[in-house]
Amino acid sequence: MGTDRYAYASRLRRMDPTAKILFSAFVLGVCLCCPGIAPGLITLALMGLLSVRWGGVPGRIFVRFLRIPLAFLLLGCLTIVVEAHAPGTAVLAGVRLGGRVWGISPAGAYRGLCIVVKSLGAISAMYFLALNTPMTDVTLGLRRLKVPGLMIELMDLIYRFIFVLWETAANIRTAQESRLGYTGFRRSIASLGSLSSMVFLRAWNKADAIYSALESRGYTGALNTVAGNYQSGRLCLLLAPAVGCAQLLCCWLEVRCFG
């Protein structure tokens, strides 16, 4: 499901998750702080390259995942880029409406482009983490980075039982469909209602059963586990300043040449 499928197949799967989180967060931070277009572009290029070449994620998969937020991004940008201008302002495109010009000015277009590129750069940094690190490793890394234990345990449990509940819901839905539960709008709504209440009840029962099972294995209030051995993440930590330098260099070059 989603990015996890590729994360389990990634060549970087066994690398220390703490290092991958720190690396991605660092690159993300630098990308967000640098103004202009070039830093976003170089982040996108480098993180895409690292995911594909180093992590072994298929290139078209990386592009496909990038397309998902792109739609939101373009719609969001539209509301920023399109502005009302005083009559007579030079616009790239626009219409006169009620005494003002509604359209895109060159400055607005530049600002929009900056946002799109910067967001894509940031997203690619996050995708590097998500496509190369299974969810359980991410939470383990966060735990090592001293994120509160309660939050981590909740994330772990929610992640595990999404699949269990999803399967339960799918089974109930199949059972309903096989008895014509989804023919017609009214019946669909009724079936969906009983499905939701059933899933809720099952979840409630399951929580009880899981608590018993945890207790029988000596649970005393903390879900402490030991993870398998990870490979060193030193390479990732060494790469961080290198990518950071590339980002800053691009930023500086852009300001110098076009600023």
Partner: peptide, 26 residues
Amino acid sequence: GIVFQDPDNQLFSADVYRDISFGAVN
């Protein structure tokens, strides 16, 4: 030790290794 009937009630972690380690850590 108890092995429950429905393994989905017993396995609380999405990571096989970490789930197995739980009892020993406790």
